[in-house]
């Protein structure tokens, strides 16, 4: 009885956290598109990524959350910021788009939105096949899954990464 109430309470707390993170993430994502300066876009994208890591933690997918922060927030976004800082993009030298391009962009974006809405209309709420296992995102479980069930795709992707690495070294050697 007592534990049931406690579980309900944690669920409610988690829902509050979920709403909080979602609001931050959506606002940051909107700001990425809206803001004029590229650096502020990137900073808002970083905030959105951190909120996403928070969502992963709410699902107890700790490894995914931390890998997301290390790889996307910590490495890729730093490189983005890096490039933008060196290019020194300013509002003044940003090419202005004509009215026709803007109109075309709005119409095509609106069409995509319409398609998405239409496809979502008839969908029932998705029911999970298995009961949610909260230990699924922990590092031991994840490692076991990767090296038994998903060994083939895992190895394939590692070869892909290796070839990318070799390619990068070759390109750097050429110059």
């Amino acid at each position: 009885m007592n534990s049931g109430i406690k579980l309900k309470k944690t669920k409610r707390e988690m829902f509050k956290l979920f709403i909080f993170l979602s609001i931050i993430m959506l606002l940051a994502a909107i700001m990425v598109v809206v803001s004029k300066s590229p650096v502020s876009s990137i900073i808002h994208l970083i905030i959105a990524f951190l909120a996403m890591a928070g969502h992963f933690i709410l699902l107890n997918a700790q490894f995914l959350a931390i890998a997301h922060i290390i790889v996307y927030t910590g490495a890729i976004m730093v490189l983005f910021l890096f490039v933008i800082m060196l290019l020194n993009l300013n509002k003044e030298n940003e090419p202005h788009k004509t009215l026709t391009t803007k109109l075309a962009a709005v119409i095509s974006g609106g069409l995509l939105f319409l398609v998405l809405l239409a496809s979502l209309k008839g969908v029932n709420a998705i029911k999970p096949l298995n009961k949610f296992d909260s230990s699924i995102g922990l590092i031991k479980v994840l490692g076991n899954e990767l090296f038994t069930k998903f060994i083939f795709p895992f190895e394939i992707s590692s070869i892909l990464f290796l070839s990318a690495m070799v390619g990068a070294v070759l390109l750097a050697k050429k110059n």
Partner: peptide, 21 residues
């Protein structure tokens, strides 16, 4: 936490932004 040492790496990689920004 389950991810232990990776947490420190994550914090270090966010710390770069302090200097960069």
């Amino acid at each position: 936490i389950n991810i232990g040492i990776l947490y420190i790496f994550a914090m270090v990689s966010i710390g770069v932004y302090g200097i960069m920004i």
